[in-house]
Computed example of a mutant assay.
Amino acid sequence: MVTVATWNINSVRLRLDQVERFLAEQQPDVLCLQEIKVAEHLFPHAAFERMGYVHRAVHGQKGYHGVATVSKLPLTELSRHDWQDNGEARHVGVEVGGAGKGLLIENVYIPAGGDEPDREVNPKFGQKLDFLERMAHWADTVDRPSLIVGDFNVAPLEHDVWSHKALLKVVSHTPVEVEALERFRIAHGWVDLGREYVPADQKSFSWWSYRNKDWKASNRGRRLDHMWASPELAPQARGHRALTECRDWERPSDHIPLVTRFEL
């Protein structure tokens, strides 16, 4: 059994105590972090060594973005795709286990896309759509069972947001973003593991804005974080959880971790 977790931590150094608590309590074999906001040489390597995550692939930059995959199991870094096409650190791909026969894990942080869902007035939104298009072209070439995880910054389904009607014109849930993500899904036939375990007609969220003082009472969330598996890998999943309790921790990330167990 191999357990993989993903979490947009919103600064790994600021929330290192929370990462340590999560790893101690949940003991995943592999943790994929997004928005680490630190360059590789300043990443808290010693802390992860101490916790037993002695294998790491870190693609970071100063102050912004960045992804890291840490593992108890041996891993080999395979790729750092620049789907943003501007040098930002938003992806790292690894193979966990034996070369050529291990588990491929793609860790991605898709751009948020700014506030206005119009590429003519908001270049960031256009960059997000182009990012998704480049991912779709890549997915069309994937020829091994893989797992792609991370902060997709898109809530694609009606019940992935607190109000489908209210958010149709809000970045992360607009039809054009949903269609772009769907093209990526179709390109490889990805299976959305979160919705394999929570039916699509039930609300399911992974992010709640800091602007909501009582996030739990208002529950105005969105499902921005995802774990998608190749069609061949998806049937090997044995359980998937969204750890909502982490949003209640002191100075939390606005995202929660997702955890999936695989019988490989």
Rank of each mutant, 00 (worst) to 15 (best):
A5V: 05
A5H: 01
T6L: 07
T6S: 13
T6W: 07
N8M: 05
I9H: 00
I9L: 05
N10C: 03
N10M: 01
S11I: 00
V12S: 10
V12M: 10
V12W: 02
R13E: 01
R13M: 01
R13Q: 03
L14E: 14
L14F: 04
L14V: 09
R15N: 00
R15F: 01
L16H: 00
D17K: 01
Q18D: 04
V19R: 04
V19A: 11
V19N: 01
E20P: 12
E20G: 12
R21E: 12
F22Q: 02
L23R: 04
L23F: 10
L23K: 07
A24T: 15
E25Q: 08
E25K: 03
E25W: 11
E25M: 10
Q26F: 12
Q27N: 09
Q27C: 10
P28I: 08
P28Q: 10
D29F: 00
V30D: 08
L31I: 14
L31N: 08
C32F: 02
L33R: 06
Q34K: 05
E35M: 06
E35T: 05
K37F: 06
K37C: 05
V38Q: 09
A39L: 02
A39S: 10
A39T: 02
A39W: 04
E40F: 01
H41K: 10
H41P: 00
L42H: 15
L42Q: 14
F43A: 14
F43C: 11
P44A: 07
H45Q: 04
A46L: 09
A46T: 11
E49I: 14
E49P: 15
E49Y: 14
R50Q: 15
R50M: 10
